[in-house]
Design a protein around this nucleic acid. Structure first.
Length: 291
DNA sequence: TAGACGTGGCA
DNA sequence: TTGCCAAGTCT
C-alpha cells in the first residue's frame, strides 16, 4: 500500500496550480449547475459539454424551469452530445426535484441515487462537489490513476470492483475529501491519460507503482471496442437528428430518407418510441416527446 | 453481468 | 484510415 500522504499532498498542490477554469467549478455555480454538468459529462469530453452547458443554464437556471418544459425540448437542446436518454432522464430529474424536493437539488447521496439518470458515480460527485460531502468519487479517471499509482497496472478492471471501492475509501481524507476527489479526477483527465500518459508532468511519478515497474502494458484480452458505423445506434442518431431539427411533427418519409435498410430503420424507430425519445402520432407522423 | 446506448476528436 | 476513448446508467 502506498502511504496516503505520498499521494495527497503532491496531487492537491498540483491541482492548485493546474485545475482548469470550468464554469461548473466556479464559486457561483449552483448545485443544479453541478448536477447538469455531471450528467452531460457522462462519457462525453469537457470540450463538447461546455457550450451546451452554458446555453442550458441560461435557458433553464433552475430545476423548475426545465420541469415546465416538454421532455422533447430537453432532447432538442441536448444537441449532439450523444446518449440522448440522458436528456430525458435529466428532465425527469428536474421534475422530481421541482415537485418532491422543493426545487432544491438533494445533498444526500441516497436521495440523489434515487433520481433518474443518477447512479453511484453521479450521486457521489454531486454530494461531493456541490455540497462538500465526503464520498469516494470513482470515475474512469480516478480508477485509472489508482490502478497505476497504487496497483501498478496500466488500466483498472472493466467493472468497478469491491477492492477499488475499498481503496478509494481508504484514501479518502477526513477533511477536504471533495477537493481531493476533483483533484484526482483532474490528474487523470490531464496527465494520467488512457493513452500516452504524461508521466514527466505527474506530481506522483516518483511514487507511481506502474511507472516504477517499468510501465508494463495491459495484460489479458483487449478491452472491447465500440463499433458504430452501420449499427442501430447510428441509425437512431440519424432519426433523432431529424426530429430535433424539425419544430413540428415529421412525416414518415422524412425519416425513411436518412437510412436505407428498412428493417433496421423500423427497429430503430420503434426503439426510440419505446425509450420515450420519440412519439408516434395517430396520423403517422413523428415528433419529440410531449408529456 | 454483459450489452445497449451517440458522437466526434485524435493518434 | 481505423480504432480507441470520453466525469456512466440501466436492464
Amino acid at each position: 500500500m502506498v502511504e496516503p500522504n505520498l499521494l495527497h499532498v503532491p496531487i492537491l498542490e498540483w491541482y492548485e496550480s493546474n485545475a482548469r477554469d470550468l464554469p461548473w467549478r466556479a464559486a457561483d455555480a449552483t448545485p443544479w449547475g453541478v448536477l447538469v454538468s455531471e450528467i452531460m459529462l457522462q462519457q462525453t469530453p469537457v470540450a463538447r459539454v461546455l457550450p451546451v452547458w452554458l446555453e442550458w443554464m441560461e435557458r433553464w437556471p433552475t430545476p423548475k424551469a426545465l420541469a415546465a418544459e416538454q421532455p422533447g425540448e430537453a432532447v432538442r437542446h441536448w444537441g449532439r452530445l450523444g446518449y440522448p436518454r440522458r436528456a430525458l432522464r435529466l428532465h425527469a430529474c428536474a421534475r422530481a426535484i421541482a415537485e418532491e424536493h422543493g426545487d432544491e437539488v438533494p445533498s444526500d447521496h441516497a436521495t440523489l441515487l434515487s433520481l433518474p439518470g443518477i447512479g453511484e458515480y453521479t450521486a457521489a460527485a454531486v454530494a461531493s462537489f456541490a455540497y462538500g460531502g465526503r464520498h469516494a468519487v470513482l470515475d474512469t479517471n480516478v480508477r485509472r490513476v489508482f490502478a497505476r499509482a497504487v496497483r501498478g497496472e496500466e488500466y483498472p478492471p472493466v467493472a468497478t470492483s469491491a477492492a477499488e471501492r475499498r481503496l478509494a475509501e481508504t484514501l479518502l481524507p477526513e477533511l477536504g475529501a471533495a477537493r481531493w476527489g476533483v483533484a484526482v479526477m483532474e490528474l487523470g483527465a490531464l496527465v494520467c491519460t488512457a493513452r500516452a500518459p504524461r508521466c514527466a508532468d505527474c506530481p506522483v511519478t516518483h511514487a507511481c507503482a506502474w511507472r516504477l515497474a517499468g510501465k508494463p502494458p495491459h495484460e489479458g484480452p483487449a478491452r472491447k471496442g465500440q463499433t458504430y458505423a452501420g449499427t442501430d445506434r447510428q441509425c437512431r442518431g440519424r432519426l433523432l437528428a431529424v426530429l430535433r431539427a424539425a419544430h413540428g411533427p415529421v412525416p414518415k418519409e422524412a425519416l425513411d430518407a436518412v437510412w436505407d435498410d428498412a428493417v433496421q430503420r423500423e427497429r430503430a424507430l420503434d426503439g426510440l418510441v419505446a425509450d420515450g425519445l420519440a412519439e408516434a402520432l395517430d396520423d403517422g407522423t413523428y415528433r419529440l416527446p410531449h408529456a
